[in-house]
Design a protein around this nucleic acid. Structure first.
Lengths: 218, 218
DNA sequence: GCCCAAACATGCGTGACGCGCATATAGTGC
DNA sequence: GCACTATATGCGCGTCACGCATGTTTGGGC
């Protein structure tokens, strides 16, 4: 094996991706420290502002989270990943949330409700969001976070619409469009000075992303 | 000034972003070395495959491009950026290409033609594309590359549809949806074993991303 | 054709980071 | 309780991004 990615990191990612509410005490602790690290990273980043992002040292994040720098690196392999982890986890929930909507609900309505539930409940922190979406060093990781929503979302869309395997492409494109709408809505909302509810911007943006007819019915 | 980003790098980025065909010999040379570095980076990455990406050292890229490692760093601040630069430049052209389409053409047709012209002419290299889109280390930068198309694309959409400033959100969402469609089409095309033309996959994907009615007309 | 200022390429040094390896410790199944 | 496994941490190495200083090329005014 030439490139052996850190075994502990891999294990962490696998668990986080598959399980949501671990019964195991070990896994619970891991999720706790993971959240501690990511929230500490985000907090420190916000304190420094987008300009001084590079002043946030790994050692600072680790000590703020109460772990050793090496442990920090067992969970995240870059500052950017740690800072954006919160939003990545948020995005990952979208597919599941959509599946939990009542079955009879129209697709556009269900999607809008799920998105609002995942991203606008509660109203996101303007400063934190601005940090993540404006700092150029974080752009890549932020986009990865939004993109993580797409795969489960596409699966959920396929399930809901009863789309056959030949509609895979359609579902994936729609999932991508929805994720893009959420992202654009975020930027738009950050640019507004008036006190608009993020949920309203989201619904408006989604109007342009979700067609009236679903993949299975056209 | 606390964080002084490398002045030379900034100058490079500005020129590249604003000018497309520099008349100045200096700028021409810069673009040449820039392309030399990025193509060398992509070539070496392809040679090693997605697994051995980290074996591609900066020194290798620099020597393959015939420049010093320090010069490499004047143009790109990470391997990933260098590897994805080709596709980023490609994506940046999309807005301009759309504006060059005949004025009478229906929107969906014009968009499809522009996308095909930018991304499927000539048929992209399967291996190179697979490298960029599958290697997890490159995901962030690859997403940034696709996202770069959105801003000029949204402007071009607004111009073409005669959308007013109140339709900004709609145009941005549509641009995001188009970019997502291109990305998804790329993944889909890479997964196909049959020899399907990438252009066909693109057109199919765009059918789900571009609504029949444009923002200004709904 | 010549000279000068600006732009550019390169060398060197520094601070930080990612991560493999080894070890101490805490949680788990029997 | 005990053996076992997963996790936290310390240490060290190789690599990288980038500021600074310097040599080299380019373009323009005369």
């Amino acid at each position: 094996m030439q490139i052996t990615r850190d075994a502990q990191t891999v294990a962490t990612l696998l668990i986080v991706e598959t399980e949501e509410e671990p019964r195991d005490l070990r896994a619970r602790n891991k999720q706790t420290t993971r959240q501690a690290i990511s929230t500490a990273a985000l907090r420190l980043a916000v304190e420094q502002g987008p300009a001084g992002l590079k002043l946030v040292r790994v050692a600072d994040i680790a000590s703020a989270a109460g772990v050793s720098p090496r442990t920090y690196n067992n969970y995240f392999s870059s500052r950017e990943e740690a800072i954006c982890a919160v939003h990545a986890d948020q995005a990952r929930r979208l597919g599941r949330t959509l599946l939990a909507r009542p079955a009879g609900e129209p697709l556009a309505e269900a999607v809008a409700a799920s998105v609002v539930e995942c991203f606008a409940t509660p109203e996101p922190d303007r400063v934190g969001l601005a940090m993540i979406m404006s700092a150029s060093e974080l752009q890549g990781e932020a986009l990865k976070a939004f993109t993580m929503a797409e795969e489960p979302l596409a699966a959920a869309l396929a399930e809901r619409t009863g789309a056959g395997p030949r509609d895979d492409l359609a579902c994936q494109v729609m999932a991508g469009a929805i994720a893009a709408a959420v992202r654009v809505a975020g930027q738009y909302w950050l640019g507004t000075t008036e006190r608009v509810a993020f949920a309203d911007v989201l619904r408006e943006a989604l109007r342009y992303a979700v067609p009236a007819e679903h993949p299975g019915g056209s």
